[in-house]
Design a protein around this nucleic acid. Structure first.
Lengths: 183, 183
DNA sequence: CATGGATCGTTCGGTACCAAAAGATCTCGC
DNA sequence: GCGAGATCTTTTGGTACCGAACGATCCATG
């Protein structure tokens, strides 16, 4: 069996990761990865940069849904839709899907859900009847205006420990990754 | 109507965002947000830092599923499970769920899918029959060893434009956010 | 022993989410 | 005008994914 077939039989000499993780444990986990796979031709810096994005996104999303959004029966996606319509005003579904990072087929179902709750409304475009524009209702406006400041407070809490410079640097680096990933 | 009730009626004087977005457009979009909501007491730096995490994660995930994982019929979650088992070896389902960032109920279903494809196998722990450990099969090992180098190449492509220092800085900042979000 | 509480994995009900196909409408060459 | 192709949204079929409820197993205390 060549080096590529190497496989860990036990966890000796590796960091114990039982229980909940803090920042130290994450670093330790990344060291373990390097110890396991260090003899291969891999780019570990890209690996950690990219995989930490998803890890952070999942953690932030799940906690937001539990602690901020659940009391209003909103999913992350539903909240995003309201937020985008609030900031940019009404728009057609193709643009809305792109802004929200959703497939347009996904958007259809979620709009139906939001429409049933009278938070948004659809309207067929007169000049091009293939298109549909979506807008907040007054209920939707009330909800997002009440909810968003609390959501922003949550975002502040999630970026605790980052300086102003670091927040801006984080946003900048993520913009670069995003434009790499959007074909 | 007070300032809080202000609502955009049209998109004049705002950046046109039709079509696909690049890094410039993202910055423009963030400027629009500030223009729309700038008179409120919100922390825009936290907002952009946090919301860009999710945007980047979604874009990276979707493209990976399409361009790297689809040819092996793997979802992002399924891939993550194989990867974690590869790096750390067999473990019980609770730890596996935590490492993968999945709810344990979700993991059950995905393990069943992977087990049906003979990529992983479950085994009841002798000393504590409540527990179940999960391990890669040899098919699973072959798959991840073939797939991971290509996945890593994808990660390199996604971090194009970032220097080594920036990749490490990105990983570091995201670790801070993640530990804020894991309660 | 016995039994109540803690700790596992799984099941359940429901939404989110995607890619691909279908259906509706517009546009442009002829 | 009129039919072919382009461009929209919705529908479809299937997986991922969550929280909560459930059932099995372990363990501490009397």
């Amino acid at each position: 069996m060549d080096t590529y077939g190497w496989y860990p039989e036990d966890n000796e000499n590796l960091t114990d990761n039982e229980g909940s993780m803090d920042g130290e444990d994450f670093l330790a986990a990344e060291r373990d990865i390097r110890k396991r796979l260090g003899d291969r031709e891999l780019d570990f810096d890209s690996l950690h940069a990219i995989s930490n994005i998803y890890r952070a996104a999942t953690a932030v999303r799940r906690r937001a849904e539990r602690e901020v959004l659940a009391q209003h029966n909103l999913s992350w996606g539903g909240f995003t839709i309201l937020w985008v319509l609030w900031v940019w005003g009404q728009m057609d579904t193709a643009r809305l899907a792109s802004e929200c990072g959703l497939a347009k087929g996904t958007l259809t179902g979620m709009l139906t859900t939001l429409e049933r709750r009278h938070l948004v409304e659809r309207e067929q475009v007169k000049t091009d009847r293939r298109k549909v524009t979506v807008a907040l209702t007054s209920d939707g406006l009330t909800l997002i205006e009440d909810l968003f400041p609390r959501f922003n407070a949550y975002e502040v809490a999630m970026s605790e420990g980052l300086s102003l410079t670091e927040k801006r640097e984080l946003a900048r680096l993520l913009r670069i990754v995003t434009s790499n990933a959007v074909p």
